[in-house]
Amino acid sequence: MATISARGLSIAFPLYHLAARSLKKRLLAKAAIRVKTDESNRVVVSALHDLSFEIRRGERVALVGTNGAGKTTLLRTLAGIYEPVAGELMVEGEIGSLIDPAAGMDSDSTGRENIRLRGLYRGMNDEEIAALEQDAAAFSGLGEFLDVPTRGYSAGMQVRLAFAMATAITPQILLMDEWFLAGDADFMTKAEERLARLVTGADILVIATHDMGVVRRWCTRVIKLEAGRIVADGTVEEVLGPAHAPEAAEEQA
């Protein structure tokens, strides 16, 4: 059964490449509590601090919070990209993450080659790659452009291809960043159905977003992050307040 459980999870980013002293001092002078130096005198941003939560099967969790609150970092940690410096994390179930649509794309390769490459990135066998190719080719609606290097695509076409490849999955745990909500309106209507199927098909959804409409529509639980800590965790109503007064509720939370 799909579950995610975290106990005391912490992630700290050492800022290695800004060792220039003056810069360091200036950063420290403005001392947000999150930027500090560690025992070996490095500048460290505490991106996530002591998070504990449990997400069970069937829950659709929205991660909300201002920019830099740690939403994407938490998604990446759940996806296994960042390993925590403290605490414990257990994720049970097959993970599918839609964090950056363009990661691993090769702009000199054709759309079709990119689809096959994505299949290899996912560790698929030939059969699965062929299925992915068919599915993504059909959905993207790129037609003959599939055999043109993606360098020659318009921005909209690139989004369509990336979206088609990324969403051709049926994971048990779906991790999503809000990028895909930024597509052009026309395509989003078409994408809506596919996205809805993906979201409802997954046992667990964790989505990082600023869009409270998305939260209210899809999610059953909200975890609000602030400066890398959980400041609120509860049902949508508990955290955001009743549906008809979203703005006021947001301020209270």
Binding site: M90, V91, E92, E94, R122, A166
Partner: peptide, 15 residues
């Protein structure tokens, strides 16, 4: 961007 990961991913910073 789905990865073929083991069904269980467990990581404990203490061990």
């Amino acid at each position: 961007m789905q990865q073929a990961v083991l069904p269980i991913y467990r990581i404990d910073a203490n061990r």
